[in-house]
Design a protein around this nucleic acid. Structure first.
Length: 422
RNA sequence: GUGGGCGUAGCUCAGCUGGUUAGAGUGCCAGGUUGUGGCCCUGGAGGUCGUGGGUUCGAACCCCAUCGCUCACCCCA
């Protein structure tokens, strides 16, 4: 019997879970404000969806998916990212009415079987959005504004927003050829990885971190200079919109991304102190994806962001607020007669919305006071033999230490005035 | 998949060149008032020293293997 969670997974215990809830609420809130509706798709899909959607040659599909057969011998995969499922649901539920747009978001666990390390897990939580049905650059700008403002709201003020356009099936092949032509003579000097990439996916050479590879690609032609008219003007308009909205960004012509489906706009948001896993979120436009997944040709753009990394940054910078989950009241019975009064009282108070704790182990008063203190209860109510006889409860203010005897029947009003009155 | 670091109490860690019953802090439980928390004091519970093998009179310590965790490369969120 293994008594530990599988590699790359973790348990969220109550104290941390409440911090997650806090963040999740912030996420739901901003998506509402920007007009995105939540979609909850299954956590597993037919393997084929990811193979076709993400791309057969990506690392994710090649070696990082949790794939297994179900009883009916169907190949099933735990979702490694969110976009493919959203696109599938979009097609399946016919959200693509003529002229209609769908703005959808998700939040939930994703699965990739890679070696875990700082800020990277095998089961991890991503949130993201997909805007389907418009190729207007305003959609791109809206998505970027959303993520930037989200992180800003949380107090992250040194965002590094990287922006690029990687063209479309019209103009990218020509750039690709130019790249290969330009780099082929230098192939022998490149890292083994890049030598392989040169034929298969030369754009990825641009973001190789290897120093010599960087040098070799230092003087290559920039993709932003070879975009077709359509891509060029799209990019230009996007930049204008961002400028007008006060969103700071940096054009990074070396920014390319791991998935095959991206077209035109790609972006990444970094936060300075994340170390090796420095991307807070990333995304881009994918005008061919819906069609590739079996839907009508529909343009789209989206992003995905990691929760664990966001949490890391917020914690490192002490931007997580203290979450007050202290009980309003701790009820301490002494003896069985008192328990018979306190137990139902406790239940009734909770039903009217108070956060109430009580002893369930038969501890001494001293131990109960201690427990009340540790839980941070604002008030403690004691009922012993004396109080039982007269139908009273001794209320102690845990902050000031003041105590007063009140009627049990009057407890509700007492709580109202003491806890909500001031 | 490749390389580095680390596995001792629930948690954070000591444990000197191998030497008796393995320690501290914190947390937990109880007591110091017979019905009162925080501070303080006392006591208690809690450890297959990751696991297996080897060296030795003797191993938490040395050697080998193995598992796990972790960081980095790769890739990504």
């Amino acid at each position: 019997m293994k008594t530990h969670a599988p590699k790359g997974t973790y348990d969220l215990l109550p104290q941390n879970a409440s911090r997650w809830r806090y963040l999740e609420e912030k996420i739901h809130k901003i998506f509402r404000e920007y007009g995105f509706g939540e979609v909850r798709t299954p956590i597993f899909e037919h393997t084929e969806l990811f193979q076709r959607g993400i791309g057969e040659t990506t690392d994710i599909v090649e070696k990082e998916m949790f794939t297994f057969s179900d009883r009916g011998d169907r190949s099933i995969t735990l979702r490694p990212e969110g976009t493919a499922s959203i696109v599938r649901a979009f097609i399946e539920h016919n959200m693509a009415g003529p002229g209609a747009m769908a703005k959808l978001y998700y939040l939930g666990p994703m699965f990739r079987c890679e070696a875990p390390q700082a800020g990277r897990y095998r089961q991890f939580v991503q949130f993201g959005a997909e805007a389907l049905g418009s190729n207007d650059p305003r959609v791109d700008a809206e998505i970027i504004a959303l993520v930037v403002n989200f992180y800003r709201r949380l107090g992250i003020d040194d965002l590094d927003v990287n922006l690029n356009s990687i063209g479309c099936p019209e103009c990218r092949p020509a750039y690709r050829e130019r790249l290969i032509e330009h780099l082929k003579p230098k192939a022998s000097q490149m890292c083994p990885n890049c030598q392989r990439r040169l034929e298969r996916n030369p754009l990825r050479l641009l973001d190789c971190k290897n120093a010599t590879c960087q040098q070799l690609t230092a003087d290559i032609p920039l993709i932003t200079e070879t975009l077709c008219d359509d891509c060029g003007s799209h990019f230009e308009k996007l930049r204008q919109l961002l400028d007008l909205s006060g969103i700071h960004y940096r054009i990074n012509p070396r920014l390319v991304r791991g998935f095959d489906y991206y077209t035109k706009t790609v972006f990444e948001v970094l936060a300075g102190d994340l170390g090796a896993q420095n991307a807070l979120c990333g995304g881009g436009r994918y005008d061919g994806l819906v069609e590739m997944c079996g839907g009508k040709p529909t343009p789209g753009i989206g992003f995905a962001a990691g929760m664990e990394r966001l949490m890391m940054v917020l914690e490192a910078r002490q931007l997580m607020p203290e979450i007050d989950e202290r009980p309003h009241l701790y009820l301490a019975p002494l003896g069985e007669e008192a328990q018979k009064i306190i137990f139902p009282l406790c239940i009734r108070l909770r039903e009217s919305g108070w956060i109430v704790e009580t002893d369930l182990q038969g501890k001494s008063l001293k131990a109960q006071m201690k427990a009340a203190d540790k839980l941070g209860a604002r008030l403690t109510g004691v009922i012993g033999e004396d109080e039982c006889r007269v139908g009273k409860i001794l209320m102690r203010n845990m902050e000031t230490g003041e105590q007063e005897l009140i009627d049990v029947a009057a407890l509700s009003e007492y709580l109202q005035t003491v806890l909500r009155g001031s």
